[in-house]
Design a protein around this nucleic acid. Structure first.
Length: 269
DNA sequence: GAAAAGATTAAA
DNA sequence: TTAATCTTTTCC
């Protein structure tokens, strides 16, 4: 999204910090590593989607992210009072926090009024009432009888719009995340997928309508804007009208490994 | 009141 | 590729 300029003598402009947490194996010293990749691809970089070149251990979490979190910049209600299609990409890079768990949003989908794939398409019901409320609240629903899907309600009162959180990257609370997921891994299988995000945050439908702009419980905090964004059609809505099936309303952070399947339908914005 | 389908996941 | 699992919505 943002154009990056080259600044010589500043090595920070040549790297992109991708990932933070490392499993602390119950050892006393908390070790975090940051995976760094070179933005300037050399001719030796054969693979288009080449993974990270090296793992560099550092004593602290990414300073950029720490700065955001230390400011406690909880997003205000007015941030959400816009079209879900505008809100969706703006949620990329933001942080979800509950208890000691902090997740960075890496993949989202927009659902809107007059959208044959939106849960609001049948009008306001007990389940979907939060979708028609003012932006900034959570909409959590049970999918396939198993999975808790977290949405961020968008737009103004009476507008049925929301943004599905499809994937996140773990920022802190890895132990809690792994415990809730029942998986001891830090690979994308941990958090790439909407049901996994809901599980990692310990959500249930009781969280539906929860205000994300108030302190406590589940919060949404400001975060760094991604440099590049991928777009594609939304997942799992084959029942919808063709114009909605084909709409490019899925967004993800380019270069992130925390993206759910299918990835091949995503392309640069 | 019954039946079908769903913004999915993990295991085979 | 398929079972798991249950609420919501639709149809009779």
């Amino acid at each position: 999204m943002k154009t990056t300029h080259h600044h010589k003598n500043n090595s920070n402009n040549n790297i992109t910090v991708q990932k933070i947490a490392r499993k602390n194996k119950a050892s006393s010293s908390k070790t975090t590593i940051v995976r760094v990749k070179n933005k300037h691809k050399s001719s030796k970089d054969s693979k288009p989607n080449s993974e990270f070149q090296e793992n560099i251990p550092i004593p602290q979490i990414n300073t950029t992210l720490i700065a955001f979190l230390n400011k406690n910049p909880i997003l205000t209600k007015d941030f959400y009072q816009i079209d879900a299609l505008d809100l969706a990409p703006r949620l990329l890079g933001k942080f979800l926090r509950r208890d000691d768990v902090v997740l960075q949003i890496t993949e989202v989908e927009a659902y809107r009024p007059n959208d044959s794939a939106c849960h609001g398409r049948f009008g306001k019901t007990v389940r979907t009432a939060p979708v028609f409320g003012p932006g900034g609240h959570a909409y959590v629903y049970l999918c396939y009888g198993l999975h808790m899907m977290l949405n961020v309600v968008a737009d103004k009162e009476e507008v049925g719009a929301a943004v599905l959180i499809r994937s996140c990257a773990p920022i802190s609370g890895l132990g809690t995340i792994q415990q809730r997921r029942g998986l001891k891994t830090e690979k994308p299988i941990l958090l790439a997928g909407p049901g996994k995000v809901g599980q990692a945050l310990g959500l249930s439908t009781e969280w539906s309508s929860h205000a994300l702009y108030t302190a406590g419980g589940l919060e949404l905090l400001d975060g760094p804007e991604p440099e590049n964004i991928l777009v594609g059609p939304r997942v799992g809505i084959e029942y919808a009208l063709p114009e909605h099936v084909n709409a490019l309303w899925r967004f993800a952070i380019a270069g992130s490994s925390w993206i759910s399947a299918p990835k091949k339908t995503l392309r640069p914005l």
